[in-house]
């Protein structure tokens, strides 16, 4: 029965990833009428599945084994707290990285019990959080420069067609990263705690993300994609693809990193090329505060909760 607690948290977070991240990957495909919503969601689900089976293993190992030896009790607290924090951030529309919440929560729960947190692994993860947006910055800058020298010379409507293809491929890469990194971060714990098998993680995880995308993402996608919204596809692609490339590189290294922060790194990269005036430093400041506060608050919350649970007579045995 107690196994159900982490599984509920895991199901909820996977579902939320589907509803939130599908719009990042699919808005342009649907908005530019390349594919209809139903087909696009199926393609998204396929790429999430592909990412999960092709490269999910490394990130799952980092989160579920290298960082600390997870058990059901730690995982229960971690995933329920993470799910709650993610739900609150969605409700209050606050920027929050699910990776940082999960890693912060795991470290907090681990420190509150006797289980040793592998500091070298934690430092590597935190270092990846710093380096990955910088990597996205460099990739985006490079892609933008290349595109400026090649694509911008094409006739407008030809350029539009090529950008559409590039944006679709970038969306697919983001879907792939969602499976290989984001979903793997959520499922790493349950897998190494013995709650699910690799096959179950590879099949049920992408299915939950797919369901989240099918049931809850359509309105956001329609608003962003179909509406007459201001999206600069040229710099948007450079920033998005730079971010996706950076996430892919870190996924190959088994590091759980945030796509959102990488996209911000990419946007700043393009912004710097277009002139510092285009970079909204106020927004970057907010994101930096969230970047620091998210893992710290998740850590503190989980640490306190795990300690409190240890003092409850009935639950102390479980902890």
């Amino acid at each position: 029965m107690i196994e159900l607690i982490p599984l509920i948290g895991c199901i909820f977070i996977s579902f939320v990833i589907g509803s939130n991240d599908a719009s990042n990957a699919l808005s342009i495909c649907i908005g530019s009428n390349v594919v209809k919503f139903n087909k696009a969601v199926v393609i998204f689900g396929l790429f999430v599945f592909l990412g999960m089976i092709a490269q999910g293993e490394k990130v799952m190992k980092t989160v579920g084994k290298d960082l600390l030896q997870v058990n059901i009790s730690i995982l229960g607290v971690t995933l329920i707290v993470s799910a709650l924090l993610i739900a609150i951030s969605n409700w209050k529309k606050l920027p929050l990285s699910s990776h940082q919440v999960i890693i912060g929560s795991l470290a907090g729960s681990g420190c509150a019990t006797d289980i040793a947190v592998n500091m070298s692994s934690l430092v590597k993860i935190v270092f990846s959080w710093i380096i990955s947006p910088a990597g996205a910055f460099v990739f985006a800058l490079t892609f933008y420069k290349i595109m400026e020298r090649t694509l911008s010379r094409l006739p407008l409507f030809r350029l539009e067609v090529i950008l559409r293809i590039l944006l679709v491929s970038s969306g697919m890469l983001i879907a792939y990263n969602t499976g290989a990194n984001e979903l793997a971060t959520v499922l790493g714990g349950p897998l190494y705690a013995g709650l699910i098998t690799t096959q179950q993680a590879s099949l049920v995880g992408p299915l939950l993300v797919f369901l989240g995308a099918v049931l809850l993402s359509s309105r956001v996608i329609e608003t962003v994609g179909k509406g007459i919204t201001v999206l600069d596809p040229f710099s948007g692609f450079a920033a998005q693809f730079g971010a996706a490339t950076s996430v892919l590189v870190f996924t190959s290294l088994g590091m759980p990193i945030s796509t959102t922060y990488c996209i911000i790194g990419g946007i700043v990269g393009v912004g710097v090329l277009k002139g510092m005036g285009t970079v909204r430093f106020e927004l970057i400041k907010k994101m930096l505060i969230s970047w620091v506060l998210t893992p710290l608050s998740a850590f503190a919350f989980c640490f306190a909760l795990t300690k409190a649970l240890q003092y409850l007579p009935k639950l102390s045995a479980w902890m």
Binding site: E160, V230, L231, G236
Partner: peptide, 15 residues
């Protein structure tokens, strides 16, 4: 255009 022709970014100026 509103049915989805062109990327969203181009649509307002074309309209």
């Amino acid at each position: 255009i509103y049915a989805g022709a062109f990327l969203p970014y181009l649509r307002p100026d074309l309209c």
